[in-house]
Amino acid sequence: MVNPMLERLWRIAPALSAITILLLLWESYVALSGIAPTTLPAPSRIWAQGVLNWPSLAQNTWPTVQATVLGFMLSLCVAFVLSVVIDFSPALRRALLPVLVISQTLPLIAIAPLVILWFGFGLAPKILLVAFVTFFPMLVAWLKGYEATEPDLEWLLGTMGAGRAAIFRQARLPSALPYFFAGLRISTTYAVVAAIFAEYAGAARGLGIYILSAKNNFRPDLVLAAVGVSAVLTLCLFGLAILAERIAMPWARFREPRR
């Protein structure tokens, strides 16, 4: 038996090496070319300045985390409720689905300032915008997943005396879980960016505001430090999604390994 910790380390080794090499290339380019740090700061400088400015960076990270987490939770609920409604009612499917698709074609750059105009500079508009950006992949994933239910299984449940609701709970919902979690992963990668974008459009504090003011002060190092923080946040969210998937689908470990 191989040590599972070692094995996990071995699996992420290529990704870690690629990132390290990229950072090294970046660092040596900055050192060799003599490019001004106000144009392109080296990774080491970004790190040092990030640490130095940590108190204000952290202060601006918290509102972003709040908007992201609350927005995402709203988004999870909205996606699920909409998916159930659409799955149960063909009429509502025909009515709602086109509207929802059109909603996703609206440019965020136009939506964000409007939502801020309506709901003010507080947390609410950020939550709404994060939910708006992230609910759709999950909704589509749920719907696709429901449709992937094995017809024979629904037939079987029918012969056992199960009604529409029982068939949904026993067959359609669990069949859709793998699809949902695929959608969830996609959505997590949009969430933090959406929150930052919403702050960009108007907020009192937050990573978006921090980036905006760092840019205005000609501090690309601090802009990039904030970008680094947002990347870490996204990775945390992504990791949580994978963890939730493991917990919710204990049977998935036993499926045929596909290589």
Partner: peptide, 16 residues
Amino acid sequence: TAPFAFMPQRDALMDW
């Protein structure tokens, strides 16, 4: 009421 016990063509076991 409930006359048949049915076994579908593929086993239709629930993975979960």
